[in-house]
Simulated assay, not measured.
Amino acid sequence: METTALKAKAAQIRMDLLTMIHGAKTGHTGGSLSNTDILTALYYKVMKLDPSHPKWEERDRFIASKGHSVESLWCILADRGFFPKEELKTFSQFGTRLIGHPNNKVPGIEMNTGALGHGLAISVGMALSAKLDNRGFRVFCLMGDGEQAEGSVWEAAMAGAHYKLDNLIGIIDRNRLQISGSTEEVMGLDPLEEKWAAFGWNVVSIDGNDMDALVRTFESIPTAAGKPTLVMANTVKGKGVSFAENVAHWHHHVPNDEQLALALAELAAVRESYEQEERGI
């Protein structure tokens, strides 16, 4: 899929996740909107995967350490054919597989995640096993920036560098907001790039809502032989919905009927513009 088509796809995924959250009356809206471009680049362009064989041994692995922002992932897995799209209507309902965090009863999910600070350690283990078994798959781990206050993240970072896991890619959704406000007010993280570099990772800082930059960066991995890569994806919380962008309140806010209609109209216009560009109109 070309970059323009990926941009249109990301707009559609944002529409789908908002509709799903609105129907369920629950969900982590802001972070799912901010990470949509990252996941779209990975699942439609970069990662090796086969929805008809979700346990294919050579597949690339994806771990959503910031598991609370699962809504974009559910919509993408459904769109890629890992499970029927109709099932999105059951999100967070009684008896559903599509709960508020990744659930490995669903095809395409490697691990139950969402206890923040655990995803990178799991990813280190997967990447190390690939090296030991001479397997060619890569492991992508998406973390939140608020999650960087967890000590276990830094223990895993040390291990990833120690074992020279250049098949391991950490991604930080750096939207600078968490549930209780600014990350720098809750627990200051900067200079975050320098900290990861000091732990032995090759750090690439990009606009995490720029599809061209995402694809270019992910396709250049490994960015340094013998080093894991950390992609600092600087994003906008609530990206794509004008009244939700950079508003901490939208971390766990559900759009009402009017807000949903406004958001869908905005995103439909964006999607249409990219579809016209792709058609050369």
Results as ranks from 00 to 15, higher is better:
residue 3 T to Y: 01
residue 39 L to I: 08
residue 153 V to A: 03
residue 34 S to Y: 06
residue 265 A to P: 00
residue 223 T to H: 12
residue 279 R to C: 02
residue 145 D to K: 06
residue 182 S to W: 00
residue 145 D to P: 07
residue 93 Q to R: 13
residue 238 G to E: 09
residue 35 N to W: 00
residue 116 L to T: 08
residue 156 A to R: 08
residue 54 P to I: 12
residue 168 L to P: 06
residue 218 F to C: 03
residue 257 D to A: 15
residue 193 E to I: 00
residue 176 R to F: 05
residue 60 D to P: 09
residue 263 A to R: 07
residue 41 A to D: 06
residue 231 V to A: 02
residue 216 R to D: 13
residue 161 A to Q: 03
residue 222 P to F: 10
residue 4 T to G: 00
residue 280 G to D: 07
residue 141 C to W: 01
residue 7 K to Q: 14
residue 65 S to F: 02
residue 193 E to D: 15
residue 61 R to Y: 07
residue 104 N to W: 07
residue 155 E to F: 06
residue 107 P to D: 14
residue 258 E to N: 12
residue 65 S to Q: 03
residue 223 T to K: 11
residue 81 G to T: 01
residue 276 Q to D: 13
residue 219 E to D: 15
residue 215 V to I: 10
residue 137 F to W: 14
residue 269 A to E: 15
residue 13 I to L: 06
residue 253 H to W: 09
residue 159 A to Q: 00
residue 66 K to I: 11
residue 122 I to G: 00
residue 155 E to A: 04
residue 238 G to I: 07
residue 175 N to K: 09
residue 20 M to I: 12
residue 239 K to H: 15
residue 28 H to C: 06
residue 279 R to P: 00
residue 151 G to C: 14
residue 233 A to N: 12
residue 168 L to A: 05
residue 209 N to Q: 10
residue 75 C to A: 14
residue 224 A to K: 15
residue 75 C to W: 04
residue 154 W to P: 10
residue 66 K to M: 11
residue 221 I to H: 07
residue 211 M to T: 08
residue 37 D to A: 10
residue 185 E to R: 08
residue 216 R to H: 11
residue 60 D to L: 07
residue 38 I to S: 03
residue 143 M to R: 03
residue 191 P to A: 03
residue 252 H to A: 15
residue 169 I to A: 04
residue 67 G to S: 13
residue 66 K to S: 12
residue 261 A to Y: 02
residue 200 G to Y: 11
residue 222 P to V: 11
residue 165 L to T: 03
residue 194 E to S: 14
residue 105 K to F: 02
residue 69 S to W: 03
residue 28 H to W: 09
residue 137 F to G: 02
residue 271 R to D: 01
residue 20 M to R: 10
residue 149 A to H: 06
residue 60 D to Y: 08
residue 145 D to H: 07
residue 273 S to A: 15
residue 100 G to C: 06
residue 229 T to F: 06
residue 223 T to N: 15
residue 172 I to N: 04
residue 250 W to N: 06
residue 262 L to Q: 14
residue 269 A to S: 14
residue 273 S to F: 01
residue 111 M to R: 06
residue 228 P to V: 10
residue 156 A to G: 08
residue 229 T to E: 12
residue 166 D to N: 10
residue 88 L to G: 02
